[in-house]
Amino acid sequence: MTLTAAPPPVLQVRGPDGPWTGALAAFERTGVAVVCATQADWRPHLPTGSNLKRLLGRDFRRFRALASDELRARFVASRMLVKHLAAGPLQVRPEDLELGYGMHGRMYLRGCEQVEISLSHTRDVLLVGISSVGLIGVDTEPADRKLYGRDVERLMCTPHERSELDALELTDRNDRLLRLWTLKEAYSKALGQGLLFPFTEFGFVPQGWSAQLARADGTPVGDAQWRYWTVPVAGKFLGAIAVQNNRRSERRDTRVGTALPQRLVNSIQDSLRARAG
């Protein structure tokens, strides 16, 4: 299982039935899979009533608190996508999984540390990443989103990035800004900090489809554990992926069914039964 230098393929899934084989194969091969979906594709499949409650579990409270039908539909579609994607490598039913949220919103599968997940959405598109090799963060924005010329660069760029930006042709600056923005979001999300890590304090130097993390003055951080990529998403969107390659196993098993050392469980259950008489 090797994380390659090339970006992971972003595979579009049309509904709960997939197709999932590409994502599962990528995950098996590299420890990372990234999928995208449109809400339009998933809307006909969204569960209702008791099926919805079963799928959302404790997330049902969050769902109920949302202000509009549109937000609720996106919420259900995104949770459904995350759980269906994770259910494959974990070999459980999607409704067996429970989502938890870190102090600053980082999504994780409660009680299942063998994988990390990340979710991003914009307009009609959802982007989800799953990793068994370490932290992961993903972000997506519409490729035509206008950032340049709105003073955004002062709020989100390091001094080095701003000087690099100024050296670009005017027509290329928006694309660069969008790329930097999504990379910063992806990395900050991977660290579980959402937008809290000040974007002017760390930067990226794009190189082809990948990128290098840099300090505020442009010096490369040079942490070999991390990889960063920019990827096209569903035609009209731009995505970024940040992955920590902390792989410590040659044959990573992510199945829930094999997570607990069975000898220990058997022995403990025997003791418990003996005590219960």
Binding site: M103, G192, F197, V221
Partner: peptide
């Protein structure tokens, strides 16, 4: 989680080598 959260205080120095 604590260590990553402190990146908001450390800023650029979070990546000091």
């Amino acid at each position: 989680e604590t260590m990553y959260h402190l990146s908001v205080v450390m800023g650029d120095a979070f990546h000091a080598r």
